[in-house]
């Protein structure tokens, strides 16, 4: 279930090749508009747009659906509770509960929003390599310390994940069973403790290795982001679409 290897980042579609700065700005604008948007027509069009991006990126649809299922668990909870408790005229009666029309509309909006943004993240962020996203973040004035922190976490999650698997396998080899009892929880606590100890020790060594290579508290970078003509055309198109959904959203208020 854990795919730390950024499976979606491998590909050669135009979505993959789009400048990471354009991708970050687009998803940011889209996410903000969708998160506050109320117009169902606007939400539907945005969902269609991000679905189109996912298709254009030629991602493995089965994997995309799997991700969506996980995300929609929470949404499912909303469908269970909200329509029955939302104030407003009853749409229908299920046993003792009255399902309100407004509640159904509310839950629909949440579902559309959530899925539209998720698909957008899959299409735009998951198709970029973490190192290209970092370069873009730096360019977009995200604080340097955050960018580098991000970078160390990403780099060492892999190493520590492998370490976890080695430790866990050796526990299994010695007859450990995941059960609901104190011994099991204690073992998990030791396992997590061991991961922390090893990570702490590793961080000391990594820092020493950096010192040995002349690190004096300053990071330098070798970036070469280039903004192509194609990027410009696509970004313009995206901006037109974003303006359009803003108009749609505002239109609702006007009517």
């Amino acid at each position: 279930m854990i795919d730390l290897n950024q499976g979606f980042a491998q590909g050669s579609s135009w979505v993959h090749q789009l400048d990471p700065r354009v991708k970050i700005m687009t998803i940011f604008l889209l996410a903000v508009i969708l998160a506050v948007g109320e117009s169902i027509i606007m939400l539907l069009q945005a969902l269609a747009f991000t679905t189109y991006l996912v298709l254009a990126a030629k991602l493995e649809l089965k994997k995309v659906l799997k991700r969506l299922v996980v995300v929609n668990f929470f949404i499912l909870g909303i469908w269970v509770f909200v329509p029955a408790t939302y104030p407003g005229d009853a749409l229908m009666q299920v046993g003792p509960l009255s399902i309100s029309t407004a509640g159904v509309i509310y839950a629909t909006k949440i579902t559309l929003r959530s899925n539209a943004i998720m698909l957008g993240i899959i299409a735009l962020l998951s198709t970029s390599t973490v190192s290209s996203l970092m370069q873009a973040m730096r360019w977009l004035y995200v604080p340097e310390k955050i960018v580098y922190l991000f970078f160390f976490v990403y780099r060492y999650v892999h190493v520590i994940w492998k370490e976890f698997n080695r430790l866990y396998d050796s526990m299994l080899m010695r007859g450990f069973k995941a059960e609901t009892n104190l011994h099991c929880y204690k073992s998990y606590a030791y396992l997590i403790g061991m991961l922390l100890v090893r990570s702490y020790e590793r961080s000391t060594r990594v820092y020493e290795a950096m010192l040995c290579r002349g690190f004096r508290g300053e990071f330098h970078n070798l970036d070469d982001l280039s903004f192509s003509n194609q990027d410009l055309k696509i970004f313009s198109g995206i901006l037109v679409f974003i303006s359009w959904i803003i108009i749609l959203e505002r239109g609702v208020f006007l009517i």
Partner: peptide, 25 residues
């Protein structure tokens, strides 16, 4: 946080990230 602390905070965070992914029965 100084730049010098970033490896440490980052790598310990990575361990917590992995800890978050562990299933506990």
């Amino acid at each position: 946080i100084d730049n010098e602390d970033i490896p440490q905070v980052g790598i310990v965070s990575a361990a917590l990230f992995v800890g978050n992914l562990i299933h506990i029965p």
